[in-house]
C-alpha cells in the first residue's frame, strides 16, 4: 500500500481524475437525502448570485423607504410581506443570502490554510518544542466556546461583514490545526514518509507532497461539514448587530428587528428565521453526503 503510494505519479492525468470524480459522485448520490442537500445548495447559491435578477424588488435591498406599503402581511405582491419601512421581506431575504454565503466562503477559505499549515508543521515535528508551542497556543483559543470568542473579537472591531468573518476565523482555525495535527503526526510514522526521508527529500517536499495529500480527504470532509456551522455563527453575530450593517440586509439582523414587532408583524421575523434553518440544513445534508463519499470504508 505504502509502496504503491510512493510510486504514484505526481499528478493524476485527466482520465484518472475523471474516474475518481465519477466514483465519488456515485458514492455521494447513493443517498437520496444528500442529493436533496446538493440540490438545495445549488438553489441557494443561484439565488445569491442572481439576487438582483431574481428578487422581485431588488431596490428594497438598500436604503429604501415606502411607508405607504409598510407592514403588509404576506400576499401575492409580497410573498413574505413587507417590513415597517415598506421593504419587501422576500427581496431582502434573497439578498441576505449573499452575506451568509460570503461569510462561509471567507471563513473557511481563511481558516483552512492557516489551520492546516499550523497542524502540518506541529504534527510533522511532533514531540518537539515547535509542536508544544503551536498546539498550546491553539489550546488557548479552544478554551472558550467559539461563539464567545467570536463575539468578543467582533465587538472590538468595527461591525462589518469582513470583521465578523475575521472574528469567526479567530475562534475557528484551531479546529483545523487540531485535525491536521492528528493526521500529520500519525502519517509521519508511515513507511512512505520514512522512505522519503531516507532518500533525502526536503522537509518542504515531505510535508506538502507526502503528508498533506494524505490529509486532504479528512480536511475536505471537515470543510463541507463546517459550512453550516459557520453560517450559524455568522447569523448569531448578525443577530446581535455585529455583522453586515443596515441598510444592507443580513438574516440575523432581520430576525432580530422582526422579533421586536412580534406578534403583529410575525412575517418580518419568521421568514428570515426559516431561511436560516433551510440554509444550514441544506449545507449540513450536503456535508453529510461529502463525508460519506470521502470516507474510505465501503458500505
Amino acid at each position: 500500500m505504502e509502496v504503491r503510494k510512493m510510486k504514484m505519479p505526481k499528478a493524476m492525468d485527466f482520465s484518472q481524475k475523471w474516474d475518481n470524480f465519477k466514483r465519488l459522485s456515485h458514492k455521494f448520490s447513493r443517498s437520496r437525502i444528500s442529493l436533496v442537500g446538493l440540490f438545495s445548495v445549488v438553489i441557494i447559491i443561484t439565488l445569491a448570485i442572481f439576487a438582483p435578477l431574481i428578487a422581485p424588488y431588488p431596490e428594497h435591498a438598500g436604503a429604501f423607504v415606502d411607508y405607504a406599503h409598510a407592514s403588509i402581511p404576506p400576499c401575492r405582491e409580497h410573498l413574505f410581506g413587507t417590513d415597517i419601512m415598506g421593504r419587501d421581506v422576500l427581496s431582502r431575504t434573497i439578498f441576505a443570502l449573499r452575506g451568509a454565503l460570503l461569510m462561509a466562503i471567507g471563513v473557511i477559505g481563511i481558516v483552512t490554510p492557516i489551520g492546516v499549515i499550523v497542524g502540518l508543521v506541529a504534527g510533522y515535528n511532533s514531540g518537539s518544542l515547535v509542536d508544544t508551542i503551536l498546539m498550546r497556543i491553539s489550546d488557548v483559543f479552544l478554551a472558550l466556546p467559539s461563539l464567545v470568542l467570536a463575539l468578543a473579537v467582533a465587538a472590538v472591531l468595527r461591525p462589518t461583514l469582513f470583521n465578523a468573518m475575521l472574528a469567526v476565523c479567530v475562534s475557528w482555525w484551531p479546529w483545523y490545526a487540531r485535525l491536521t495535527y492528528g493526521l500529520a503526526s500519525s502519517i509521519r510514522n508511515e513507511t512512505f514518509v520514512q522512505a522519503a526521508q531516507v532518500i533525502g527529500a526536503s522537509h518542504f517536499h515531505i510535508i506538502f507532497k507526502e503528508v498533506l495529500p494524505n490529509c486532504l480527504s479528512s480536511i475536505f470532509t471537515k470543510m463541507a461539514l463546517d459550512v453550516g456551522w459557520v453560517i450559524l455563527i455568522g447569523a448569531s453575530l448578525s443577530f446581535v448587530g455585529l455583522g453586515e450593517q443596515p441598510p444592507t440586509p443580513a438574516l440575523g439582523t432581520m430576525v432580530a428587528d422582526g422579533a421586536r414587532y412580534l406578534p403583529e408583524l410575525w412575517w418580518v421575523c419568521v421568514f428570515p428565521a426559516l431561511v436560516i434553518v433551510w440554509m444550514i440544513l441544506s449545507f449540513n445534508l450536503f456535508g453529510d453526503g461529502v463525508r460519506d463519499a470521502l470516507s474510505p470504508e465501503e458500505a
Binding site: A235, G258, A259, W266, V270, V277, I280, L281, N284
Partner: peptide, 14 residues
C-alpha cells in the same frame, strides 16, 4: 442541529 438557538427562541416566543 441546523437551527440556531435564537431562532428556536423567537419561534417559541411567537
Amino acid at each position: 442541529i441546523a437551527t440556531p438557538s435564537f431562532v428556536w427562541l423567537v419561534l417559541f416566543i411567537l
